[in-house]
């Protein structure tokens, strides 16, 4: 018996939910970025799994989308962490609940 697509999708759904948990429930900005990275990795896992289990994977579309997605996630992580450092310099905090200057 080999793992089926269902198992990979369940693992990916679990990883996505853990990432959502980190992004929604933590108050530290870096934890939110970690959660977003985990959600992106779960999406990549889905792309690769669907590519592998497709009936006739002629063109490696799933692999290509995963590669581009990794590149975009790297750019997102760099910008997000630069924003965290910039916010820390201005407000001396990384707690997102204290950054309420725009609240009406």
């Amino acid at each position: 018996m080999t793992p089926t697509l269902t198992l990979f999708l369940i693992i990916s759904a679990a990883l996505f939910s853990i990432g959502l948990l980190a992004a929604l429930s933590r108050r530290h900005a870096i934890f939110i970025l970690i959660g977003i990275e985990m959600m992106l990795a779960a999406a990549n896992l889905n792309f690769i799994a669907f590519w592998r289990f497709a009936p006739q994977p002629q063109a490696p579309t799933g692999v290509m989308v995963a590669i581009f997605s990794i590149a975009i996630a790297a750019a997102e992580a760099a910008i997000g962490l630069a924003l965290v450092i910039s916010v820390y310099r201005h407000y001396r905090t990384t707690n997102v609940e204290k950054l309420d200057q725009l609240k009406g």
Binding site: L20, S25, R27, R92, E97
Partner: peptide, 23 residues
């Protein structure tokens, strides 16, 4: 950003609820 000696363990339990519902 380590200089801030503030608790990093703040936890929002409604996020857990949303994550479990999505899962």
């Amino acid at each position: 950003t380590r200089h801030a000696e503030e608790p990093t363990s703040g936890f929002n339990w409604s996020g857990v609820l949303v994550a479990v519902a999505v899962f």
